[in-house]
């Protein structure tokens, strides 16, 4: 199963180290593979190093793709995280 969803990044700091860490935490809870795509670049959602290399400040759109048996559950959790601005202002 594959689920793709595009988000607008709304927290002030964008995808910085702390937000990236939270993405990795969720990615590690599931069996599905996860990729983050930005400007045609896709990075592994389980690698904090790779996530840090994408430039994603506030206002950017970021596409998340889950592929695997629990993709729907994983996407739901990831949506909550990103839409709640990573729990940040």
């Amino acid at each position: 199963m594959q689920i793709v969803k595009t988000f607008e990044i709304k927290n002030q700091l964008g995808i910085h180290a702390r937000a990236a860490a939270k993405i990795v935490e969720i990615a590690n809870l599931f069996n599905s593979d996860v990729f983050l795509e930005k400007d045609g670049c896709a990075v592994d959602g389980r690698s904090i190093l790779d996530i840090l290399t994408i430039y994603c400040p506030k206002g950017c759109s970021l596409t998340v793709r889950f592929k695997g048996p629990d993709a729907d559950k994983a996407m739901k959790m990831m949506s909550d995280l990103i839409e709640n601005k990573f729990g940040e202002p």
């Binding site: 180290a17 702390r18 990236a20 860490a21 990795v24 592994d44 389980r46 690698s47 904090i48 190093l49 790779d50």
Partner: peptide
């Protein structure tokens, strides 16, 4: 604490 979590995550990063 967050910074420490980030550093731990970097240590465990498969890519690294």
């Amino acid at each position: 604490l967050y910074i420490i979590d980030v550093h731990v995550m970097i240590l465990k990063d498969q890519r690294l």
